[in-house]
């Protein structure tokens, strides 16, 4: 398991795309943020979300169509809460062109690959580039190597993930939706890194 991080310290921008009517901030102590998951089909995006939101892992989970919407609130130690409104997008190729619809205005993007699949790591890099070009300029990005429980089948070295994340100013973590390893940590770390509105 590797964990590396970087310095996103900007404001959340939200324009276009599917966005709630009200802004992201409920008040200084309670944030509401739009989070999008991107990555190749089958890397485990839906499993990560379902583990986080419902505490479940369903090995028969099915390929996502379009995008699913779920939300979950995390309470942080400083007694603030963050409500994640999560877009779990479909990794299937035909939906690639639609991704902007879901990531536009997102405060957080979680780009997922499967540590047993170098192709999915390449695809993750494609998404990072796309987000750098077309995502909100102040987006918080996390790179996630999932299926960390499959160590014996690992094909993407931890260091590759760490290096790529560092180079691109991303937060990096390896997770397992199956064992629940690092799933909550992923979202807590993201929550901590969110830009806070200055208290008035």
């Amino acid at each position: 398991m590797g964990c590396s991080s970087s310095v996103p310290d900007r404001n959340t921008g939200r324009a276009g795309g599917i966005n709630p009517d009200s802004g992201g901030v409920i008040d200084a102590k309670n944030l509401r943020v739009k989070l999008v998951l991107l990555g190749d089909s089958g890397v485990g995006k839906s499993c990560i979300v379902l583990r986080f939101v419902r505490g479940q892992f369903d090995p028969t989970s099915k390929v996502t169509v379009g995008a699913s919407f779920l939300s979950q609130t995390v309470a942080l130690q400083d007694s603030t809460t963050v409500k994640f409104e999560i877009w779990d997008t479909a990794g299937q190729e035909r939906y690639a062109a639609l991704a902007p619809l879901y990531y536009r205005g997102a405060a957080v993007a979680v780009v997922v690959y499967d540590i047993t699949s170098p192709e999915s790591f390449t695809k993750a890099q494609y998404w990072v580039k796309e987000l750098q070009k077309h995502g909100s300029p102040d987006i918080v990005m996390a790179l996630v190597g999932n299926k960390a429980d499959l160590q014996e089948k690992r094909e993407v070295p931890v260091q590759d993930g760490i290096d790529y994340a560092e180079k691109n100013g991303m937060f990096f973590i390896e997770t397992s939706a199956k064992t629940a390893d690092n799933i909550n940590q992923l979202f807590e770390e993201i929550a901590k890194r969110l830009p806070r509105p200055s208290p008035t």
């Binding site: 599917i18 839906s46 379902l50 028969t60 989970s61 099915k62 390929v63 996502t64 169509v65 379009g66 995008a67 699913s68 919407f69 779920l70 779990d88 479909a90 939906y95 639609l98």
Partner: peptide, 26 residues
């Protein structure tokens, strides 16, 4: 498509008899 049962979703869909050229959103 099993995934619809998991949570609410928003997906492009085309109704071939209504307009085979364009996506609607479901």
């Amino acid at each position: 498509s099993e995934s619809f049962r998991t949570s609410e979703s928003f997906s492009p869909i085309c109704l071939p008899r209504y307009n085979p050229m364009a996506f609607l959103y479901a």
